[in-house]
Design a protein around this nucleic acid. Sequence first.
RNA 1: GCGGGGGUAGCCAAGCCUGGUCUAAGGCGCAGGGCUCAGAACCCUGUGGGGUAGCCCUUCGUGGGUUCAAAUCCCACCCCCCGCACCA
Length: 968
Amino acid sequence: MKINVDSIEDKWIRKWRESKIFEADPKPGKPKFFITVAYPYPNSPQHIGHGRTYTIADVYARYKRMCGFNVLFPMGFHYTGTPIVAMVKRLKGGDRELRKLFVEVYGIPESVVDGFDEPVKVARYFHEEIKRGMEEMGYSIDWRREFTTIDPQYSRFIEWQFLKLRERGYVKQGSHPVGWCPSCSGPVGQHDTQGDVEPEIGTFTLLYFKLSDGTILPAATLRPETVFGAVNLWVNSSGEYVKAKVDGEYWIVSVKALEKLRLQNRSVEACEVLRGSDIVGLTALNPATGMAIPILPADFVDPTHGTGIVMSVPAHAPYDYVALMEVKAKGVDGVEQRVIDAIDIKPVIRVEGYSDIPARDVVEKYRVMDQRDPKLEDATQDVYRAEYHRGFMRDDIPIYGGLPVSEARVRISDDLRSRGLASYIYDIMNHPVYCRCGALCMVKILEDQWFIDYGDPEWKRVVHKLIDSMSIKPEVLKAEFHNVVDWLREKACARRIGLGTRLPWNPDWIIESLSDSTIYMVYYLISKYVNLYGIKPDCMKPEFFDYVILGRGDVDSVSKSTGIPRDILESIRIEIEYFYPLDSRHSGRDLVSNHLAFFLFNHVAIFDERMWPRQIVVNGSVMMEGKKMSKSLGNIIPLRSAIKEYGADALRLSLLSAASLLQDVDFKHSIALSFKAWLERFIKDAEELKSAAELDSVMDRLRVIDRWILSRLQARIDEARRALEELEVRDAVQSVIYGLDDDISWYKLRVSVDGGLDDVAKAVLKSLWKVRALLLAPLAPFTAEEVWSILGGGGMASTQIYPSPSPSLRDIVVEACEDMLRSLLSDSREILKLMKKPASRICYYLSSPYKWRVASYAAEMFKLGSIDVRGLIDKCRVDPELKGYMDRISRLASEIVREAMRLGRVKVELYSRINLDVLRRYLEDAKPFLERELKCRVEIYVEGEGDVYDPTGRASRSIPWRPAIYVE
RNA sequence: GCGGGGGUAGCCAAGCCUGGUCUAAGGCGCAGGGCUCAGAACCCUGUGGGGUAGCCCUUCGUGGGUUCAAAUCCCACCCCCCGCACCA
């Protein structure tokens, strides 16, 4: 029979939808479980990496539902933000790369791409695409609550949230440096740059070197402490410079630098255009030492970086050292050689392992050829790092002598600034970074920027308290959350462009995406009513949210002022009281330091303690055949194509089983295929077991091995439950699939006669298949439903109660005997393997009763604590029944102790349940099986009884946990 | 730099918190066998080395230490990955 995965999936998607089993409404008295995953941003189809988080959440939702909870698992779509806007702009600008991505990688028809002329159209398209993927994956979502973050009703909600934050004093206004494109006049993030580089903003100290007429030559540096060793200045002689009036003083900087100063809100007025060569040869005063130093040309100076004026510290900066050596050797046009010769290298910092001039050390070490040599970067890194961590200011440096460099740096910069000899400037650390439009990125200081003040210490304190009291899975992340909360500072919460909600008190600003997604989980409880009754945005005034979310105000007056009928208001209020707080929040690990942290802050700010979230679950990402998924590698597999290729269940299992929660999953084609095959086989087996009898009808005919497999099943159920409870989905797959497979294949080997199964075995397997279908239902729901229905389970698997271990089917003695049988078989095989000739008969010798007595003492000792030979002998000595055996016991005791150590606590505990009679009967019973497996006659004796066939005297070697073996 | 995570057999990966059940789960790959006209799939067996008796030797980044006993606990070192924001 051929299994048609597609039609099975279609069938169950339809049945689930028609039966509305995933639509959750408040049910007083029934425990609820509210679970959400971070909603998707619809700027591309989802790939299998996105699928992991949603699948884990769905497994949890399905599991909790089967545990009797009224589970609510909703979904929305996050339209807020700039990337989609930027994409449309690029498409309109004829960006071929992006078009290619859409058409060739995502498989979107050309005509559809042509229609992408507005951000919302793009969002709607991917929204539907993503939603379909979620349905196809079998996610048990209550779709009645779906919304997007640009729905006007949602905007009312976000406005309300921001009014609350502002009321509580968490919203502030201030200035803020951002990466900026002067040509687009907009902020640039990673998405906006060539090569997706994140512009890093750094603060440079601007040191004011002055010409004799007072004109300032500001040198930008990250190492202001080295100013004491600045013995000349560098400019690029062919670079464009300007003399300009900056904040009322005359400055000379590069043309680009003037633009930066303007963006950073200095008053700037250019006066005169210069070339670098125009200022070469002039003399400037060092602001720290007062020394007159010459201005010299250097090719390495990049006029677009910093100010285009570079202070030269040849003792500690390899670039400066090399450049100085060059000018000393070659001379400079228009500068007297005497001036150049007079330049002395001045050391400022001493650091162990380096000479007085560390820059020279590394230049020699790296064999740097000239100032264009790329090795200078590494050389520079070396010196900087060593000096920063291990360096001290030399004792001849006034005031700061003896200070560690890291401390001196801050103090010197502060002191010079307070004396008006320096200031600071922001610049791009990883310069140069280019905007997609091609322009060089700079730093702009935005004035009047709105912030949420996550730096507020009191607010942080409360968030710490929440983190301590909630569950975070995996638990190791708790420390990370605490750290993140400690780091967080003001967060810019609004921008000028992009989709989203406008700040209610200042509509020029649009609330950015990480700030409008912090408490929206509660909105799912409202959106159901918005969708159901078409509540108008205008009705959703602050008092509406105050009432339904916080329980403030009076229903009648709220109803009157909003025009929303009283019963609807009350229903929403009841819904929120019932489902809130959120029981589990799921996301990938990349959201820990932003979204998830903000989620906690905002809940604490807006809700009462009893409505704070209960749990966060974080998972790692997905790799593709060992490599990171990326557009450039072209190894992104869209979720929906993967579903087509492997089927939803096989894909789910692949994503669930390949790694523990926080670890990155390595997705492999071969693994997905083997799950696919496994699932098909599971269904085929069910078809074959369909006609078997029910377990109840064969209960009185069960053999030990039947009892064994049923007992194992109970253990697997227990493992699966435990694993799912802790969201160790990997372990759940392990137990339900591989673990049970192991048990079943052993069982089949034991019960099959001539390769076939009798009707008892079939009945046992049928019952096992039914239980297994339910065990599998959260993990691979389509297959589970299919098998459950094939075997006539009744109702849907998704709504059954998750199996619990049944104590009456657990049989530890049988498990112990079977375990011993297996090790006996494997020991026998090992012996047989080493024998050259085939064996004709194999004899097992069980220990005589007195040995069992000694073993039971040993097990007891082990259970209570440690085990030792002397102690064991002492115990035996006082036992009158062992009186006659003391001569043999000393050797036996040491053997037993050794074996106990080898077996370990768990096995010894297990074996202690067995006694001689039970084991003898058990092995006698299994004799035909052993003979079949070992292909020779098997005989079982008890040491010390009459007619024991024992030509080599092996019987005496037996101990109770390990019968002796003789092979002939 | 600060903070977090990690280095386990051919590969991926569990175990580590709570030391002994650890030559170390499971999967993939590989090899042999079965099935088959053949192949794919599937099913068995093996997969550090040695061994004519169930065993011995070696192994969990490196080096020390604690312990009767260490992949697991402690110390030092080396290496790798991620986050540090205005961006979803």
